[in-house]
Simulated assay, not measured.
Amino acid sequence: MALTVETLREDVAGLLGEDPEDIPLEENLVDYGLDSIRLMTLVGRWREAHGIEIEFADLAGRPALEEWAKLLGLPR
């Protein structure tokens, strides 16, 4: 399965115990409960499953799905 914005959303929602539709693309994910441990989990998951080479600090500095999609070069 390819990494898409919807995959990002589903992975984040799964870690937060939320419905994917309840996670907005533009909102700060920290406000939804994303902490550094969960973010490290996501980075590791995406590296392993999709071969993504992204740094934790890059995602932590811009904690919104739309920003991550830009960093990862994903179409919206």
Rank of each mutant, 00 (worst) to 15 (best):
M1S: 13
S36F: 08
A57Q: 13
G14S: 07
E18F: 08
R9S: 01
E27Q: 08
L25E: 08
G73T: 00
P24I: 03
A69D: 09
V5L: 14
L29M: 13
E53S: 04
D31M: 06
R76G: 05
L59M: 14
A49I: 09
I23L: 11
E53C: 00
R45Y: 11
E67W: 02
V30L: 14
V30E: 15
D58P: 00
L29P: 06
R9T: 01
L74F: 10
R38M: 15
R38V: 03
R47M: 12
E66V: 08
W68Q: 06
L39V: 02
A2R: 15
L39K: 04
D11G: 00
D31K: 09
L65T: 03
E21R: 13
E55T: 04
E27Y: 03
D22K: 06
R62I: 02
D35K: 04
K70V: 11
Y32H: 14
E18G: 00
G73F: 14
R62F: 01
A60S: 11
I52S: 12
A64K: 07
N28F: 07
L72I: 00
A49W: 12
A13T: 02
M1C: 10
L42I: 05
T41K: 15
G73S: 05
R62N: 15
D19K: 02
P63H: 10
N28Q: 06
G44P: 09
I52N: 08
D58F: 06
D31T: 10
V12C: 02
P24F: 05
E18Y: 10
W46Y: 15
A69Q: 09
L72F: 03
K70I: 10
M40H: 07
D58A: 15
L34Y: 05
W46I: 05
L65A: 07
V43P: 07
T4G: 02
P75D: 14
E48W: 15
E21H: 01
I54Q: 11
L16S: 01
A2H: 13
V43T: 07
E48Q: 14
P24W: 06
G51P: 13
L16D: 01
P20I: 01
E26F: 09
L71V: 08
D19E: 12
A60R: 15
P20D: 02
